[in-house]
Simulated assay, not measured.
Amino acid sequence: MPRRSLPFAVLALLALPGCFSNNRHQGERLYVQHCASCHGDQGQGLERLIPPLAGSDYLTDHRGELPCLLRNGQNAVIVVNGIGYHNVMPSNKGLSPAQLTNLLNYIESHWGNEAAPRTIHDVEKQLEGCR
Score class of each variant (00 low, 15 high):
78 I>K: 12
94 G>H: 09
38 C>Q: 10
73 G>P: 07
127 L>C: 07
65 E>C: 09
51 P>A: 14
12 A>E: 00
14 L>Y: 01
115 A>S: 12
11 L>R: 01
58 Y>N: 02
100 L>T: 06
25 H>M: 05
58 Y>K: 06
36 A>G: 02
60 T>G: 12
119 T>W: 09
90 P>I: 15
75 N>L: 15
108 E>T: 15
117 P>N: 03
21 S>Q: 10
1 M>I: 07
53 L>A: 10
31 Y>Q: 03
24 R>C: 00
125 K>T: 13
28 E>F: 07
48 R>Q: 07
38 C>N: 06
55 G>L: 14
90 P>T: 11
21 S>L: 11
62 H>R: 12
27 G>E: 03
15 A>W: 06
112 G>M: 11
62 H>A: 12
8 F>E: 02
89 M>W: 15
129 G>C: 03
59 L>Y: 10
120 I>G: 07
75 N>M: 13
107 I>Q: 06
65 E>Y: 14
60 T>H: 11
93 K>T: 14
54 A>M: 11
75 N>Q: 15
114 E>M: 05
54 A>G: 09
115 A>R: 09
38 C>M: 07
3 R>H: 03
35 C>D: 11
54 A>F: 13
74 Q>E: 14
25 H>E: 10
85 Y>L: 06
11 L>A: 11
21 S>T: 08
93 K>I: 11
5 S>C: 01
129 G>E: 09
